[in-house]
Computed example of a mutant assay.
Amino acid sequence: MAKGVRLVITLECTECRTSTNKRSPGVSRYTTEKNRRNTSGRIELKKFCPQCNTHTVHKEIK
């Protein structure tokens, strides 16, 4: 089978890594897909973080 263009990526909250005052321990992570031809760099999306209880920037991790 041929390798597809779409990749499954993981988005991680940037605030949870550095902040100590949050609702619960842990880091918020989302999974999504991206087209490697259209977006070759790492993406950043604003998503809801249940640990921080607010909308924060989520960056793509490896």
Rank of each mutant, 00 (worst) to 15 (best):
E15I: 04
R29C: 07
R29H: 04
Y30L: 00
R23P: 04
P25M: 06
R37Q: 13
S19H: 12
N21E: 15
C16H: 01
N35S: 02
P25D: 00
G26V: 05
N38P: 03
S40D: 12
K22C: 03
T39L: 09
G26N: 03
E33Y: 14
V27G: 00
R42W: 11
E44L: 09
R23D: 03
R37I: 12
S24T: 07
S19N: 13
S24H: 05
K34D: 00
S28T: 02
R17F: 08
S40R: 14
N35V: 06
S24C: 06
S40A: 11
E33M: 10
R29F: 01
T31M: 10
K34P: 08
R17Q: 07
T18H: 10
N35C: 13
T31E: 06
N38F: 07
G26D: 00
E44C: 14
R23I: 05
R42G: 10
R37L: 14
C16K: 05
K22I: 01
N21G: 12
T18V: 15
V27A: 01
E15M: 09
E44Y: 12
R23Y: 09
R23H: 11
Y30P: 03
T31I: 05
T32D: 09
I43S: 09
R37W: 12
E44Q: 15
K22V: 01
R36Q: 13
K22T: 03
V27S: 08
S24P: 03
T20L: 14
T39A: 13
R29N: 02
R42I: 05
T32C: 03
T31N: 09
K34M: 00
I43H: 02
G41N: 13
V27P: 05
T14Q: 12
